[in-house]
Design a protein around this nucleic acid. Structure first.
Length: 529
RNA sequence: GAUUGCGUAGCUCAGCUGGUAGAGCAAGUGGCUUUUAACCUCUAGGUCCUGGGUUCGAUCCCCAGCGCAAUCACCA
């Protein structure tokens, strides 16, 4: 080793790369960090420029020139300039093969000592897995048929100083994939495919909503009062105003204010923040879409969401986001084959409850008995409808067919404080939840627009809140004032975008569809100095 | 927040009734002008997650901590 190891990282692997960095500068006179590269083709485009006829003609001309040195070598192979990260490096002596990768795919670069400057060839021989290079050359293929760029020049664009993961296995450790996503992205090409798909799905949703006349809006993420969902918020503080703020748990109340203001169809796609647990389908910040339509109801929203999800499933098929897609909008999700054909299933909450629990949800005695039998806390004293809700989640939700998108309709009114009670049965709220693949994708409601009923429900909810909840759950006077101004009757819905993306990209964890999921800091344990 | 499991070389993984560790790839060296996880030669590479304890001796057993994963709770 010609150079002292990196002071911060004593690994000799890093020292070797630093030595090469120094060698590039002092011995080869090369800037390892490159300059602007114009006229670059993606690797996929360059590969598409391959022409077998030109390759054969060139090979024949080279062969002829060996017999008769005076014979002209006509080369009609396409010239190209590409750049990418080195993912393979095979040095055969006087010929070097390098595998390059960019977001479009992989392409081999073949470099013959006789066709390059000594400096460029020396750089090529010294490349490491992870370096970024730019290459000029012509598109041809090798004797074994591998389409490649036969390089005439190669320049260093960035030196990799971090020992990269195994080129064969990629980066498999889930923790490292999330913490160092940038490594995951070049070590595991599927990661890039998944996030491209995510982008296309969000774009598809946006275009779908716009085509239906919905206006996209952006409402505050910092709320003086946390509202719109029953979730613990994150707290923060505005210094200059001396003002406590909550990161929003839902945009709902602001979007409804826009209906008061006269917009009739609005949607917002953005982040919500909920101070809750983390698991396979929960990240503290997640992306949701909420949409509201004046003069609609939850039926309006049902048609909207069914069309939207079906549309996205079809788009997933045609874009092959999901490699295991079968004929029709049937998409693989792990071991499941989820059938997105319309119409989706619909089932009444009360029906599903009876099937799962074995009694009518209106039968107070039997519900309480069932709650006791299922060891639900405070079964003897709890409110009837809270028990119904508990029992439903414990016993009935599992009956929903995970292979078919299913709307569960008409939840108990008592657990839906922002929802308008059903005209036919005031115990029920005009609300549905959509379940796909065993996950809750989102709810929709016929929104409550009577300010006095809303105020009463909020007040009831506050009265029932425990000490912790009541520290951040306060009455949103602004929202009540907006309702007093007059909000048209409306349908509203919210769906989890991350979960839709999970389903359509066959990703088992929400962390596979969030670029930088929240991780605990590592290596900062209380080691005494 | 609870329970269970995992943490060994840069990566992927072996290993040990408790006697301080191995492989493949990656890295360094030498060879090779058509390779495909290139191959061949030689070499180097480890706080076995951290801190305690038991022991003559701990990577292994016990306790605590940290991180990750799964399940549950909360929630979407």
């Amino acid at each position: 080793m010609m150079q002292e190891p990196d002071a911060l990282s004593p690994s000799e692997l890093i020292a070797a790369r630093r030595a090469k960095l120094s060698h590039l500068r002092t011995e080869l006179g090369v800037d390892p960090y490159g300059q602007r590269v114009d006229g670059r083709a993606t690797l996929a485009v360059a590969r598409g420029q391959f022409d077998e006829g030109a390759h054969v003609a060139h090979a024949a001309a080279v062969a002829a020139a060996k017999v008769d040195p005076a014979a002209p070598i006509v080369d009609t192979r396409a010239k190209t300039r590409v750049a990418g990260r080195v993912v393979q490096h095979r040095d055969m002596g006087k010929i070097v093969f390098v595998g390059l990768r960019d977001a479009s795919g992989d392409l081999q670069i073949s470099m013959s000592k006789s066709e390059m400057s000594p400096t460029a060839f020396a750089v090529a021989k010294g490349l490491d897995y992870g370096d970024i290079v730019a290459v000029d050359g012509r598109i041809g293929r090798t004797q074994k048929g591998e389409v490649c760029v036969w390089a005439t020049d190669l320049s260093m664009q960035s030196k990799n100083l971090e020992p990269p993961p195994s080129k064969w296995h990629g980066l498999e450790d889930a923790e490292l994939r999330y913490r160092r996503r940038y490594v995951d992205m070049f070590a595991n090409p599927q990661t890039v495919r998944t996030f491209e798909a995510r982008s296309h799905i969000v774009s598809t949703i946006r275009r779908f909503m716009e085509a239906r006349g919905y206006l996209e809006v952006e409402t505050p993420m910092m709320h003086p009062v946390a509202g719109g969902a029953a979730a613990r918020p994150f707290t923060t503080m505005h210094n200059a105003l001396g003002m406590p703020l909550f990161l929003r748990v839902a945009p709902e109340l602001y979007l409804k204010k826009l209906l008061v203001g006269g917009l009739s169809k609005v949607f917002e796609i953005n982040r919500n923040f909920r101070n809750e647990g983390i698991d396979r389908s929960h990240n503290p910040e997640f992306t949701a879409m909420e949409a509201y339509e004046a003069f609609g109801d939850y039926g309006t929203m049902l048609e909207l969401v069914e069309s939207l999800v079906h549309h996205c499933a079809c788009a997933a098929l045609s874009h092959q986001w999901n490699a295991r897609a079968e004929d029709g909008p049937i998409l693989a999700f792990g071991e499941m084959r989820i059938d997105y054909r319309r119409p989706f299933e619909q089932v009444q909450f009360a029906t599903l409850f009876e099937r799962g629990v074995g009694c009518s949800m209106h039968d107070q005695e039997k519900v309480r008995a069932a709650a006791t039998a299922n060891h639900i806390a405070h079964a003897a004293t709890s409110d009837h409808w809270l028990l119904v809700n508990e029992l439903f989640e414990r016993c009935a939700e599992a009956l929903i067919d995970p292979l078919r998108p299913t709307f569960v309709l008409d939840y108990p009114s008592a657990t839906s404080p922002l929802t308008r009670p059903s005209r036919a049965n005031p115990d029920l709220a005009e609300r549905w939840d959509l379940f796909i693949g065993g996950m809750e994708i989102g709810p929709a409601y016929t929104e409550l627009n009577d300010p006095d009923v809303q105020l009463a429900k909020f007040t009831d909810q506050l009265r029932g809140a425990d000490e912790e909840m009541s520290t951040f759950r306060t009455l949103d006077e602004d929202f009540i004032a907006a309702l007093r101004t007059g909000m048209p009757p409306a349908g509203g819905m919210g769906i989890g975008i991350d979960r839709i993306v999970m389903l359509l990209t066959d990703s088992p964890s929400i962390r596979d569809v969030i670029l930088f999921p929240l991780m605990r800091p590592e290596g900062t344990s209380d080691v005494p100095a």
